[in-house]
Write a protein that binds this DNA or RNA. Structure first.
Lengths: 253, 253
DNA sequence: AAGTGGTCTAGACCACCGA
DNA sequence: CGGTGGTCTAGACCACTTA
């Protein structure tokens, strides 16, 4: 490790050096790195500098550190991770304006046939179904037709459902102390059915976007399934942005 | 800040105290926090401890720090973040099997009209366009029709394009030392054009899924634009999974 | 009991920013 | 120029694991 010319801080150089030793298998995955004081001696730097370098490696996911044990090598290389992040689940829908769901029908349904796949349950299970058009702002032409399935256990939220300005999963979170931990979203194209086409004011059979979201709480319990049917490109488009997660250290090439 | 009973390290207590001062608007968003040495005096701790606390706040996204300026408040509270993560950009396409792009046409195009919006440039700018059907595995029916635009500066990769098994952006990354830092993806439904319908073996005008991806490198330079046209639901569906990110520091409540 | 990483202090020099 | 955060040292005590 040169002590001159380089612009890099010493802890960066040390981290790179250790990374190289890990990728070259001088230090094996599952084994221990030298102790902090050993590294201080080897590289002639202070403990603070060593710890800063090791912190980098830990944040990069290459090592784990434990009091009384040492620094263990977890992986040979950092995966490049791309993440999409959003401030809240509402951003999932990413409607430019606030939307409201006009619930036209509330009824109990019994899962059967393809509905079992959608709701991930056995035939015969009961669910509560809300459906109706969704409007953006004060628009009079709906931007989507929405179906929302929830387990009958949450039927208590029916009383809060009028012209709905908050998502139904928010009601479930607030009134039943649940927390949405995971969302599975599926997007596909389809020809819109005559009924939905009429409600969306488009030609029967025209192209539509189907967005299905499964909301899971703790323990992977399915809390809600929502299906949104949108008319074609000009009226709605789903967009997302992914960023390369900031790397603590670039790989040594 | 009590110096007794608490098990928490001082930098955690200090970070919590500062977080409270931020949420209570004692320190306003956009304003500066006290300097490190000022905090040392106020809390009676060493600079190292102050820096560790401020590091926490920065990692939580609450403040940003700049040499010569100070510590600026960015936000009042840690957003609950939902993230979709993937090991590599290839997962964006998330094709079950490997796919190959059969490039049927390579030509230079000049941006004009709607193409300017797609390519985010002024009319008259030149781009290189590759297009052709995309096949999954050894299937003979294509799963998509793909158009890829790249700046002419990367024309050098033409020689590597046959039946393409690696994405074009990978070629750009490898041969020109670029790095894809951000991807913008837009998904919409549309009626497939007669030409594309024929190539995809579906009825003309049937519903299709359009997935457009803009690939950006460092400095937000646009490196590639890809448009994929898929037939309806039964043949292709885009799915994504989002998870609530584990919080590094819970808010102090 | 010995050795590990975790916390913390007191001090120093530097690169960078704004006045 | 003075003040900011960034880097770095030398040293200390502690909590934890293993033997």
């Amino acid at each position: 490790m040169p002590t001159f010319t380089t612009r890099q801080p010493r802890y960066v150089l040390l981290a790179q050096s250790l990374m190289q030793d890990i990728t070259s298998e001088r230090y094996m995955v599952g084994g221990l790195l030298p102790t902090e004081s050993e590294l201080c001696r080897q590289f002639g730097v202070s403990r603070h500098t060593v710890r800063e370098a090791l912190r980098r490696l830990r944040e990069a996911g290459l090592v784990s550190r434990h009091q009384g044990i040492g620094t263990r090598v977890k992986a040979k290389a950092t995966e490049t991770r791309y993440v999409q992040s959003m401030a809240s689940l509402a951003d999932l829908m990413q409607y430019a304006e606030k939307t409201r769901l006009a619930v036209r029908s509330t009824r109990e349904v019994v899962a059967a046939g393809p509905l079992c796949d959608l709701l991930r349950c056995k035939a015969g299970q009961r669910w509560l179904l809300f459906e109706g058009p969704r409007f953006a702002g004060r628009a009079t032409v709906p931007m989507a037709y929405t179906l929302v399935y929830i387990p009958p256990a949450y039927a208590g939220i029916r009383q809060y459902i009028g012209a709905l300005k908050v998502p139904i999963y928010t009601l479930i979170e607030e009134h039943f102390g649940e927390r949405i931990v995971e969302v599975l979203q599926e997007i596909g194209a389809m020809a819109l059915s005559p009924k939905v086409s009429r409600l969306l004011h488009v030609r029967a059979g025209s192209a539509g976007l189907s967005i299905t979201r499964h909301y899971f709480g703790a323990d992977d319990r399915l809390l809600e399934v929502a299906v949104n049917l949108h008319p074609a490109l000009d009226r709605y488009r789903y967009s997302m942005r992914l960023r390369l997660e900031s790397q603590a250290n670039g790989p040594p090439h």
